[in-house]
Design a protein around this nucleic acid. Structure first.
Length: 281
DNA sequence: CTCCAGGGGGATA
DNA sequence: TATCCCCATGGA
């Protein structure tokens, strides 16, 4: 086992896990267990640091997963410098968020599941998938299940996929898994620029603009992506005074406005808007 | 272009 | 109890 310590000023565990970019984690002891692919890490606070505890062989994987090489103070300062009141508040509130570098396959399947769905149910569905189709492993004495392989997903009867709570998304999952088995190479997309990547992602059955932007950002770390859901639509309309209604046009407008920082700013705004709404109740 | 089905749970009225 | 909403999309 190895411990990686990182200044928690720009790495807050809760903000990073609850800002909606990731679905496989659970509370454990003084912190959280986070699962990715077949791996697991234990995160906790220690003094002024966030500590990542993982198996020796997974050190580099999780350093990349938590995007430790990137200086988030630059992104935070940039957000403040734009002079938009709501963004300043949002960045201050969510400056501990890190945009994860998640497993590409897992991100793609997970965000197809996320469409027109709520986060508790997305988590529950993915958990059932892992429990049934994944492999059992142990980390720090805790049992967990790996994310299903494409082979397992492709050979799973559609009725069983529906039992996980996938609903009509079961068809999307099955068709994609089968396409990958038949030669569709998603990992090859890593070499593409954002425009080309998005075109390829959009050609996948069940992937529209919203899922495409999430996968571009959370799987491929294309930060010139601005996923627009109902919360971001509200921010755009209520706080930025926008008049567009088509989410695709709103996304294009916001990427044009924020450029390379779009993805980070999207997370600041989404998280702040949603958390603040929760607090009102 | 608009309309609507797709699962199902939780929030709201 | 009924209705709306949810990190939407494909098809008519």
């Amino acid at each position: 086992m190895v411990n990686i310590s990182f200044d928690k000023k720009f790495f807050n565990i809760k903000d990073t896990l609850y800002c909606g970019q990731v679905f496989r984690f659970r509370e454990y002891k003084e912190g959280y267990l986070v699962f990715s692919q077949d791996k697991c890490a234990y995160l906790f606070d220690f003094d002024e640091n966030t500590v990542i505890c993982c198996n020796d062989g997974d050190k580099e994987y999780f350093e990349n997963y938590f995007d430790l090489a990137r200086d988030y103070s630059v992104i935070y300062e940039k957000a403040l410098s734009l002079g938009v009141d709501l963004l300043t508040e949002s960045a201050e509130y969510g400056k501990g968020i890190r945009i994860l570098n998640q497993d590409i396959m897992e991100t793609l399947f997970s965000f197809i599941i996320s469409q027109n769905n709520n986060i508790p149910r997305i988590k529950a569905t993915i958990e059932k998938m892992c429990l049934t189709l994944g492999d059992e492993k142990t980390f720090m004495g805790e049992k967990y299940f790996t994310f299903p392989t494409v082979e397992k997903l492709a050979s799973c009867p559609i009725e069983q996929l529906r039992e996980f709570g996938l609903g009509y998304r079961a068809e999307y999952i099955l068709r994609l898994a089968k396409d990958i088995i038949n030669g569709l190479n998603i990992l090859e997309f890593k070499n593409l620029d954002t425009v080309e990547l998005k075109t390829r992602l959009l050609s996948i059955y069940g992937v529209g603009r919203k899922v495409c932007d999430c996968v571009s950002l959370f799987g491929f770390h294309k930060s010139d992506s601005f996923p627009v859901d109902t919360w971001i639509s509200k921010v755009y309309k209520e706080d930025l005074g926008g008049e567009l209604t088509d989410p695709i046009k709103i996304s294009d407008y916001l990427v044009d406005l924020f450029g390379e920082n779009s993805g980070y700013i999207q997370q600041y705004l989404f998280y702040y808007k949603r958390e603040r709404e929760k607090l009102k109740k």
